[in-house]
Design a protein around this nucleic acid. Structure first.
Lengths: 201, 201
DNA sequence: CCTCAATTCTATTGTGCTATAGAATCGGTC
DNA sequence: GACCGATTCTATAGCACAATAGAATTGAGG
């Protein structure tokens, strides 16, 4: 799989490209990468299947682009949170809210479920982002422990994995049950997580 | 998709069938339902692709069988737990342990990730099991609230979803990092979850 | 009106996949 | 050793899909 060779800048080019990305994300999220055909994406755009190859070198490249987009901004957002003067609990809460935010849901879902189908080189590129983000979250927790806000006997690695377990499941879940709105679910998850991490006094 | 018409009883028939099921689970878990070909399964069995159709009417039917198997026993196990005289916390712990147990992992993963690709009738059949199980877990939590062991202000529905969020993510996770053994991960998750649910005193 | 680049199209190639049909094989039983 | 059901095989139909090649179209600027 070659690097996605994006079309050179042009008025409205960025715009159209991102529409194509949206469509790909939508279709990949709905049917899964292997279950989705390039024709499905093209149909959603009112375009012929072959025309897509003007924007992407391959189906793989499209998946990589969607995954990138899906993880985009996570790292910088978490850095902004880390720089803020909020308490550890508040930081965890903010991070969880951001990560499982229902906007860009298709991109997030594709990142979570389909990135494993990327060819190895692309998967490595994406993995680099992941690791950075995961470390940032873990650092948040470790700081909470050091500051005494979280329990000293807390296993930071395990707590980090729990963070992702909850966060990712939230992203997957909502929409399934009308009574469970994203807000309600996230609020509850944040509450549970913070209770689990904090010192009980 | 027709119901899977299983071959009539024969000496060793059950045995061979379950080997075929194992292979299907393995391949579906590894490559995803749409990413896996029936030839992949046959190769794993040292068999020709077409021979598989002696055991299954269609690829769909194979997926349904694997999903069934993946969820099998959950309901009865949870019933046994519910009938035991353990405390609410202990019950939750047991349930989480059982659900994310690393045995039968391929089946669990396929159930979690691929059941959505089942054709509607099959998906409905599988869903019936799910609902039963989910209710049983929620009942466990509600009982814990009523008995005063868990916080009275706990949202039982949200706690149930958190249970599955953690449990399912555990099933997905291990194997990725050698330092994170299933035991360690599950122990940590159980601890976190119980802390989050229990009254703080 | 002409040019040129960007964008989309038509047409097609080649491949891989599910599923069916019917023949061959195997192992046990009478 | 002929029979029989269970199991696996060969062969193939038929379709869907990713990707390529090159032509047509569109629209902005001179």
């Amino acid at each position: 799989m070659k690097q996605a060779a994006l079309p050179r800048a042009a008025p409205g080019a960025r715009r159209r490209l991102s529409e194509v990305l949206d469509a790909a994300a939508r279709v990949f999220a709905q049917r899964g990468y292997h279950g989705a055909s390039t024709k499905d994406i093209a149909d959603l755009l009112g375009m012929r299947q072959a025309s897509l190859y003007y924007y992407f070198d391959s189906k793989d490249a499209a998946l990589e682009a969607v995954c990138r987009e899906g993880h985009q901004g996570y790292v910088e957002r978490i850095r902004r949170i880390a720089r803020s003067d909020a308490s550890a609990s508040e930081r965890i809460a903010l991070a969880l809210f951001h990560q499982a935010a229902p906007e860009r849901r298709d991109f997030t879902l594709v990142f979570l479920r389909e990135r494993r189908f990327l060819p190895l080189p692309a998967r490595k590129r994406i993995r680099a982002f992941e690791v950075q983000y995961e470390r940032a979250i873990q650092r948040l927790i470790e700081q909470g422990i050091r500051s005494g806000e979280f329990r000293a006997d807390l296993d930071a690695r395990m707590a980090t994995l729990a963070f992702f377990g909850l966060g990712n499941s939230a992203a997957v879940w909502y929409g399934r049950e009308p009574a469970v709105t994203p807000e309600r679910l996230l609020r509850a998850y944040v509450d549970l997580l913070v209770r689990a991490l904090r010192l009980t006094h």
